[in-house]
Design a protein around this nucleic acid. Structure first.
Lengths: 205, 205
DNA sequence: ACAAATACATACCGACTAGTATGTATGTGC
DNA sequence: GCACATACATACTAGTCGGTATGTATTTGT
C-alpha cells in the first residue's frame, strides 16, 4: 500500500546485508526470511522479486558479501615485496571485519562451511573454493619466501599452508565456543610461534 | 495399540543413539523429533516419557554419548609412562570413533560447538567444558614431557596445548568442507610436523 | 501519452515443528 | 490378585517455515 520511492539496487543490498546478519547469527537453515524482512522493512513480494528462493539468497550472501570481504583481508599476501611470514602474522592479528566484533559469533566462513557443506553442494563448492584459494595463496607466499631465503628450505609448503588454514579456523572456532578473546589470542599466539619457526635461522627474530 | 514387550532402558538407549545420528547429521536445531521417532519406531509418548523436552534429549546425547566417547579416545594421554608426543601423534591418527567413518560429517563435538555455543549456554558449558579439559590433558602431558626431558624446555605448554586443540578441530573442519580424506591427512601431517618439533633435539626422530 | 516491464505489496497455503492432552497397556510391590 | 506407578500410544494444537498467487504502483522506452 504505502509505496515509497523505489531504489531496486538499494533494496537488494539491504536484503543481502540483513540476510548476512541473520545467517551469521542463526545459520542458514535457521535463518528466517520473515526475520530478514522484519530487519529491512522489505516485503516478501520484493524479496522474491530479487531472489528466486532462499537458497539463491544464501548463495548471493556468500558470493557478494562473505567471500569478497575475506578475500580482501588476505590479498596482501599476494604482494611479492613483503616478507610472507611477517604479513601472515600481521593479517592474523587484524580484526578488519566490521563483523569480527564478537568472538562468540565465530568466523562467517567457518560457520557456514560447518553447517552447510554436508547438506548442500552449492554452499560447499563456494566455501571450499574460497578455503582452497586461501590455502594456495599461503602456499605460494611461503614458496616465494623460500626463493628469497626468508623461509626454511625444508618446509613442506603444501602441508604447512593447509595446517595454517586449519589452525586459523580452529582458533576462531575454539574462541567462539569458549566465548573468550583470551582463548583466541592464546591459540593465535601458538600459531604465530609456529609460523615464526618457519623462518630461516638468520631471519629469526 | 501393538505394544511389544517393554524394556525402558533399551528404549532410552535407542532414542539416544537415534538422536545422536540425527543431530550429528542435521545439527541440533534442525534435528527433527519426528525423524528420531521414525528411526527408532518409538512413539512420541515414549520419547516424552524419557525426556522432558528436545533440549534435555540434546544434553543427554552430549553427556552420555559424545563426551564419554571423545574422553575415552584421549584418555591414554594421562598415562605417565608414555612419551606424550608419540601418544599425541598416535591418537591423532586413530579413527576409533565408529562414527568417524565419513569425513564429510565432521567432528560431532565441533559441529555442535559451532552451531550451539552462541545460542544455548547449556550446550556451550558442556562442549567448552570438554574442550577445556582436553586442552588441559595435553598441557599436562607436555609438562610431564618437559620434566622427563622429552619435550623442549622453551615450549610454552599452555599456548601449545591450545594451539594443538585448535589445529585438530580445524583440520576436521577443513576436511569436512573439502569432503576429502586427503585434506584431512595433509592437515594432520602438518600438525604432526609441528608436534614433532616440540621434542628435545636428542629425541628428534 | 501510453504500453510494457519492473518493483513491489498482501493474503494465503501446505508442510513441518515442538509440545500436550488423554487414554491404555504393562510390570511391580504387597 | 489387586493397587499403583511405569511405560508407552494416538490424536491433536498453536506456531513457524518457505513459497506462491494475485494484485497494484512505479519506471522506462518509444
Amino acid at each position: 500500500m504505502a509505496q515509497t520511492a523505489r531504489n531496486p539496487d538499494q533494496t537488494r543490498e539491504a536484503l543481502l546485508l540483513a540476510a548476512f546478519e541473520e545467517i551469521y547469527q542463526q545459520g542458514f537453515r535457521k535463518a528466517s526470511l520473515d526475520n530478514i524482512l522484519r530487519r529491512t522493512g522489505v516485503t516478501k513480494g520484493a524479496l522474491y522479486h530479487h531472489f528466486p528462493n532462499k537458497l539463491a539468497l544464501g548463495y548471493a550472501v556468500v558470493d557478494e558479501i562473505i567471500v569478497p570481504h575475506a578475500a580482501r583481508k588476505w590479498q596482501r599476501l599476494l604482494e611479492d615485496s613483503l616478507n610472507p611470514i611477517d604479513t601472515l602474522i600481521e593479517i592474523g592479528e587484524e580484526r578488519s571485519f566490521p563483523i569480527e566484533r564478537d568472538v562468540s559469533l565465530g568466523c562467517p566462513i567457518n560457520n557456514l562451511a560447518q553447517e552447510m557443506s554436508g547438506v548442500d553442494e552449492g554452499f560447499r563448492d563456494r566455501l571450499n573454493g574460497f578455503l582452497d584459494r586461501w590455502r594456495e595463496v599461503i602456499e605460494h607466499a611461503l614458496q616465494r619466501g623460500q626463493v628469497n631465503g626468508l623461509v626454511r628450505d625444508d618446509v613442506d609448503t603444501h602441508e604447512a599452508a593447509a595446517f595454517i588454514v586449519a589452525a586459523f579456523e580452529g582458533a576462531y572456532g575454539l574462541a567462539k565456543c569458549a566465548c573468550s578473546e583470551e582463548v583466541l589470542h592464546t591459540c593465535l599466539d601458538g600459531l604465530n610461534t609456529y609460523v615464526n619457526s618457519l623462518r630461516t635461522s638468520d631471519e629469526t627474530d
